[in-house]
């Protein structure tokens, strides 16, 4: 048997072992199905999946530039409409392409209301070029352009709230999900694709190389992000939060400790104030989305 699997994202791609984004690509193409056209921005996924002539994409796929995936998708959608074709248009872009360089094209395309699904695989930095900070890099993460140092604890800013920005554009369906919860991911992508108009799904996709952990830990770390409240899986329909994944929260430390990008918070000395600041971010998330499962008080 030449092909033992029937994924639409093929074996032989050149992602690192344990790549969260590669798993996201597999799951998203699975949810989208064969009747779809994919648009990628420049980025790690584009590079690991399409060195000529070895494409890993078994669905029609196009990459144009770093910043213009949403505009290219707009053109494809318009062309399909004109031709009376029914394929679904799905964008697959990293957080740098989404949060930063592609922002204008995204804003324009969402405002125009094209029928497409924009997927951001969020690995929280520019991994293709060597782990530089993006608008999605979390607070205190050390990257090559926000390095921790004598006078720095790493990235000074919190993640930009892209889902809220796109919901504010009137996107009828906006969701966040994680590769750690494949059923949730598949369901949300399917729902996004089925929703007419521009929809947005942001997928938390840990990067073992960029974050500094062993590849086998990818899923475990993605789960910890949710269990600590530093990532929230939720769904927004017409701008209102309709579904949130609840958790019994763990301290953020349990997540931070697993990754080299936060190592400076523990070594050489423990930075209690910084860890507390990150805990405050998680607490704020928990309050905003109501993710805490309140356990009944222990009986004495």
């Amino acid at each position: 048997m030449a092909e033992k699997t029937c994924d639409l994202f093929d074996c032989g791609h050149r992602a690192c072992g344990g790549c969260g984004a590669a798993l996201a690509a597999r799951l998203v193409t699975k949810a989208a199905g064969k009747e779809s056209i994919f648009v990628s921005s420049t980025g790690c996924m584009e590079v690991f999946s399409t060195p000529y002539p070895e494409t890993a994409w078994k669905v029609p796929w196009i990459h144009s530039l770093f910043e213009n995936a949403a505009a290219v998708a707009s053109g494809i959608e318009a062309a399909l409409k004109k031709q009376g074709r029914k394929e679904k248009v799905v964008i697959m872009a990293g957080d740098g392409a989404t949060f930063d360089i592609g922002m204008i094209c995204i804003s324009g395309a969402f405002e125009r209301g094209h029928d497409f699904t924009y997927i951001c695989y969020d690995n929280e930095a520019y991994m293709n070029t060597g782990i530089q900070r993006s608008g999605s890099t979390p607070y205190d993460a050390s990257t090559t352009t926000s390095p921790a140092g004598k006078y720095s604890f790493g990235n000074k800013r919190q993640k930009k709230d892209m889902p809220a920005i796109l919901a504010a554009h009137g996107a009828p369906y906006v969701a966040t999900t994680s590769i750690a919860y494949p059923a949730d991911l598949l369901q949300k992508v399917e729902k996004a694709i089925a929703t007419p108009g521009p929809s947005y799904v942001q997928i938390h996709a840990p990067c073992c190389t960029g974050w500094g952990f062993e590849g086998e830990q990818t899923i475990a770390i993605a789960k910890l992000a949710i269990e600590t409240g530093l990532w929230v899986n939720y769904e927004m329909i017409d701008g209102k939060v309709t579904k949130v994944k609840k958790v019994v929260r763990k301290p953020v430390e349990e997540y931070l400790k697993t990754q080299k990008r936060f190592r400076h918070l523990f070594k050489p000395t423990r930075q209690d104030a910084e860890i507390a600041a990150i805990q405050a971010i998680a607490d704020k998330n928990a309050e905003k989305f109501g993710i805490d499962i309140k356990l009944p008080p222990k009986k004495e």
């Binding site: 064969k34 399409t50 494409t55 029609p60």
Partner: peptide, 8 residues
Amino acid sequence: PISFGMYA
């Protein structure tokens, strides 16, 4: 399905 805009 064809891939457009691959890298060389």
